[in-house]
């Protein structure tokens, strides 16, 4: 073994690493929140009266699920300016992540919705709820609960996938690792640290989601 590990040399780049980590956290939080909203809207569109919305949502899901994320990202950042839509690296990165996560979540949430017992919808109609009220109040909450663990996994996949936006120079964690190893040539250490930080983020995300889930979906008796 002629290679000596030298993690100490990374300390010099501590700030770069931390600011990269912070950017990854921000990308993740924003794209997770917006992506979940988009997924809910996409799933709602799938059962809408209007056929354009239904088919539009389906086309969107198919388009995103069957093309590489990096191509989606490049299209948004390098392609769209050709038709006059320009944005910063971070904006393009977030948009690509949101669109990507939204498509997968549309499909996941739709599957949860499809398992809604028909009788509950009929009961709600009988009580006088409108279609929109039925979707928001009756269908969505249990459907979301049914697929919650898949939603969480998908959000984590997108957090990890955010590494790709380093390709358009968003200065997130992977970008930072690239930068550091290009300066000190400590590839092994740089990427290992980055990997551990991603692992930590994934772990924290799951923890936070689980906490939210167990609060939101508790079926403990409520005091009135």
């Amino acid at each position: 073994m002629g290679y000596e590990l030298n993690f100490g040399a990374l300390l010099e780049y501590q700030d770069v690493l931390l600011s990269g980590l912070w950017m990854t956290v921000k990308l993740t939080v924003v794209s997770t929140l917006l992506g979940i909203m988009l997924g809910i809207l996409g799933a709602a569109a799938r059962r809408h009266r209007n056929p354009f919305l239904r088919h539009g949502s389906k086309a969107y899901v198919e388009l995103i699920r069957n093309t590489p994320f990096i191509v989606q990202l490049f299209f948004i950042f390098f392609g769209l300016p050709a038709i006059g839509i320009k944005m910063t690296e971070v904006e393009a990165g977030i948009l690509a992540l949101v669109i990507n996560l939204g498509a997968y979540l549309t499909e996941i949430i739709r599957a949860g919705i499809d398992n809604t017992p028909k009788g509950q919808i009929e009961a709600a109609r009988t009580l006088g709820l409108s279609s929109r009220q039925i979707f928001i109040r009756i269908i969505l909450p249990p459907a979301f609960q049914r697929v919650y663990s898949s939603v969480v996994s998908q959000c984590i996949i997108v957090m990890l996938g955010s590494a790709v936006v380093s390709q358009i120079s968003v200065q997130e964690l992977t970008f930072a690792a690239n930068f550091i190893q290009s300066r000190n040539f400590l590839s092994f250490e740089s990427y290992l640290v980055a990997a551990l930080l991603y692992l930590l983020l994934a772990f924290l995300m799951r923890l936070i989601f689980n906490l939210i889930g167990s609060r939101a979906f508790s079926r403990e008796e409520k005091q009135s």
């Binding site: 017992p117 509950q120 009961a123 009988t126 009580l127 006088g128 709820l129 109040r137 249990p142």
Partner: peptide, 21 residues
């Protein structure tokens, strides 16, 4: 019309259909 009717007619089903959440 169904919504208007719901003010006058209620329905109970074989399968209860309570909202579980």
């Amino acid at each position: 019309q169904v919504r208007k009717l719901s003010q006058s007619v209620g329905m109970v089903f074989q399968s209860f259909n309570l909202f579980p959440h």
